[in-house]
Design a protein around this nucleic acid. Sequence first.
DNA 1: TTGTGTGCAAACACTTTGCAATTAG
DNA 2: CTAATTGCAAAGTGTTTGCACACAA
Lengths: 139, 139
Amino acid sequence: MDIAQILRSEGFKVTPQRIAIYQALTGHHNHPTAELIYQSLRAEHPSMSLATVYKTMEIFEKIGLVKVLDVGDDCARYDWDTQNHSHIRCTVCNKVEDLMGIDSKAISKIVEEGSEYRVTGQQITFEGICPDCLRKQSH
Amino acid sequence: MDIAQILRSEGFKVTPQRIAIYQALTGHHNHPTAELIYQSLRAEHPSMSLATVYKTMEIFEKIGLVKVLDVGDDCARYDWDTQNHSHIRCTVCNKVEDLMGIDSKAISKIVEEGSEYRVTGQQITFEGICPDCLRKQSH
DNA sequence: TTGTGTGCAAACACTTTGCAATTAG
DNA sequence: CTAATTGCAAAGTGTTTGCACACAA
């Protein structure tokens, strides 16, 4: 099922902007910010506006196409992999990567069983210095 | 070692504002926001300003007296328990509680061993609905 | 045709900053 | 005395909103 079909089936209109934003999102492996997506689309879509990126992301989140990440650098990042998983952000170059080492689903199960909350979401984020930046620092 | 001594030993001046803010912080069990601390001090310290709360928290963070939390509600919260531990925020009443069920230190160890990052920080935050709000909803 | 979507600019919320006046040491 | 700190107001940042115009269905 492609993006146009998903939008239609959820009662939203299919627009060039929405398609472009979706493609930009799935094309990036960097958990892009709204600004980054906006910038990467300006060349092809000169009239694109940042507000449209935000509004579109809100829809995408609502219909489960993206997860909004809060990795502690004061701006939302968008992840098209909506499975629970953890992230790590390099405090030097600011890139965000997936962390596969830990089983987020198991952790959230522990939380749910250990507390009386109904757990609805999780954000597991680490920060550190990535191998590349570590190497540069040692020179 | 009390707050006055700590400040002095770190080369900062001891002011009534800093003492009051520290007391407000340690008095709250709610991971207060800057605004909340500011409001709770206005009565006793009419001239207190929000900017001073922010500036003071920056110092407290620098000298390891508080950890700044990012629990996904668009404002910083301050925690005087600087040991790594997880939090859960109720999306209905917006309160933030400590989560003792999971061993954050162990998780961060796993991350450090499983990746090539030098891990320097972590934010493990869940969101859900607290027992109180669950009860109210069912009526 | 009609109501949703877009793009601009203004509004927003939280936080930071510049600076004159104040105060701790 | 003097350098650090305060408090105000203004600026800054990322995000949201109102609204006229454009466009998908």
